[in-house]
Design a protein around this nucleic acid. Structure first.
Lengths: 144, 144
DNA sequence: GACGATTAGATCGTACACGATTTTTCTATC
DNA sequence: GATAGAAAAATCGTGTACGATCTAATCGTC
């Protein structure tokens, strides 16, 4: 007998991830950011000047996803993409002043999202850690 | 201070959903299915002859996502798309014999996936229910 | 039974996501 | 210091996702 999507863990994960992105739209739209762009911005706010590859490892994305996304963020004036002088294969990403300001504005978003869930901080952390555990079972991190 | 993606619940959800889809590839590729196509197939295996709108509600997708996906599945010979005689606005989806055979082959996939996670059945159900709870907090189901 | 409002899908445009391949640069070893 | 192999991004093609809009069919009300 075929299991219905409604009963599948995978579908719960898939549909909840969509619901999460959808819940982020009203938080990100005023800033002009998409959800993956918000992740890149947050990663660079924590450590500026990272390479594309380092961001790719952190966000578990490929260069073929990031390159066009980063070009859009560069076109929006939030970051610069420059080849590393010491190793010209690498591209370093640096936030512009506007990018830093945007990151400051975005800093309150996780709290706003947490409020939307109606969950306690400890429930949020527990769920996060359960998901990270499942993720590591499915796809162990590469470099990093 | 900006929270790093690695510490965010939303990123745990986002990246674990990607890891899940990636873990499904070796299970689905031999059948020629993508992950959302697998969901449609499973939904129709449980109840054949559903409308596009009913599948959309069940999978929480929009018609603009489903229409091209369903056309690809029709082109692959797995289902037929026919206007309902009683209400020509609706399109009914019916599995072909090949579609039924494919669904039979796909019926073992959830168990194979569960094995990949290394989690117990009860852990899987618990996590599924936690995710469904979060999903309903973020985006209550519409029709259904 | 006409006609405005609603509903169901489809179409269009934009933005991910990723497999496969390509280009450029660097490194290792001779 | 030439060169094979490795590494980092970029490019290309396909398949989701979804907001906005469009079209065709049905429903509600008079």
């Amino acid at each position: 007998m075929t299991l219905a999507p409604a009963d599948m863990l995978c579908f719960a994960l898939y549909s909840t991830a969509h619901a999460m992105q959808s819940a982020y739209v009203p938080l990100l739209e005023p800033l002009g950011l998409t959800y993956p762009q918000y992740l890149v911005l947050s990663a660079l706010a924590g450590e500026d000047g990272q390479t594309v590859g380092r961001i790719a490892t952190a966000l578990r994305l490929e260069s073929n996803t990031l390159t066009p996304l980063l070009k859009r963020m560069e076109a929006a004036g939030w970051l610069s993409r420059r080849r590393d002088a010491a190793d010209e294969r690498q591209v370093r990403l640096t936030l512009t002043p506007q990018g830093h300001r945007l990151a400051d504005q975005a800093a309150g978003i996780p709290a706003a999202f947490a409020a939307k869930t109606g969950l306690s901080l400890s429930d949020i952390h527990d769920l996060r850690d359960i998901l990270i555990d499942l993720r590591s079972r499915l796809k162990p991190p590469v470099g990093d």
